[in-house]
C-alpha cells in the first residue's frame, strides 16, 4: 500500500515539474511568460530578473524563437540586389544595426508590388499610423555585459553573414549562429583584434 502511495506521489511531482518546465508558461518556454509583461508595466526599472524562469533561461542561454508579425522574406529582397544596410541603417556608422520601421518599408512599397496581400496589409497599417512590431532575433542578455559596436566590424570587412548566417536564403531571419564568447574570441584572434576583456565587456 505504502509503495503505491510513494509511486503516486512521484508521478504527481514529475508531472508538476514537467508542466513547470515545458508547459505553456514554463521555465524553458519563451516570452509567453508573464514576467516580461510585468516588467513592462512595472513603475520601476531594475536589473533583477522578472521571474525565476527568466533567470534560469538566461543562465542556460535558452531563448525562444522570434515570432514575426509578417512573414518578411529576406531572400526576395536580397535577390533584387538590395543590400543589408539599405534597411538596417546605421550599421556602418554606429553601434546598432537598426531594425527597420514601417516608414522604411513604405519608402519602396508605396510604389512597388502593391497588389500583394501582405503589402496591402502593411499599407493599411501605415494608413492607420501603426508600426510593425518586429521582434529581435539576435542580441545579448543584460548580464552578458557585452557592449557590441557594429561599425568597426563592418569597416574591418567582416561580412554580415559571418555572424548572422546566410540571411540571403532565409524568409524571416532565424538565429543560426550562436554568439558565444568563443565565437567572438576565435575571430578576434584570427584577425589580430584585441582580446582584452574591456574590448567587449564594460
Amino acid at each position: 500500500m505504502r509503495k503505491w502511495f510513494i509511486l503516486l506521489l512521484t508521478t504527481v511531482a514529475a508531472l508538476g515539474l514537467g508542466w513547470g518546465f515545458f508547459g505553456e508558461n514554463g521555465f524553458l518556454r519563451g516570452q509567453s511568460n508573464t514576467g516580461a509583461a510585468r516588467a513592462q508595466t512595472s513603475p520601476i526599472f531594475t536589473t533583477a530578473h522578472s521571474s525565476v524562469g527568466e533567470a534560469v533561461r538566461h543562465f542556460f542561454g535558452i531563448r525562444s524563437e522570434a515570432q514575426q508579425p509578417i512573414a518578411y522574406t529576406h531572400k526576395a529582397h536580397l535577390d533584387r540586389s538590395i543590400t543589408c544596410d539599405t534597411c538596417h541603417t546605421g550599421v556602418n556608422t554606429g553601434p546598432q544595426a537598426r531594425i527597420p520601421d514601417i516608414r522604411d518599408c513604405m519608402e519602396c512599397h508605396e510604389f512597388v508590388a502593391m497588389d500583394k496581400p501582405v503589402i496591402q496589409q502593411i499599407t493599411a497599417m501605415w494608413e492607420r499610423g501603426e508600426d510593425i512590431p518586429w521582434q529581435r532575433v539576435y542580441g545579448f542578455t543584460d548580464e552578458a555585459h557585452v557592449r557590441f559596436n557594429h561599425a568597426p566590424h563592418i569597416r574591418a570587412d567582416v561580412e554580415c553573414s559571418m555572424c548572422h548566417g546566410d540571411v540571403a536564403q532565409m524568409t524571416v531571419a532565424e538565429r543560426v549562429v550562436d554568439h558565444t564568447m568563443g565565437f567572438c574570441v576565435n575571430c578576434h584572434t584570427q584577425r589580430g583584434a584585441s582580446n582584452d576583456c574591456l574590448t567587449c565587456h564594460n
Binding site: 513603475p43 553601434p95 557592449r147
Partner: peptide
C-alpha cells in the same frame, strides 16, 4: 532600481 521614466536616461554604452 530606477523609477520610470528615469531609466530612459541610462547610458547605452555602459552595462
Amino acid at each position: 532600481i530606477w523609477e520610470k521614466p528615469l531609466h530612459l536616461q541610462l547610458n547605452p554604452d555602459v552595462s
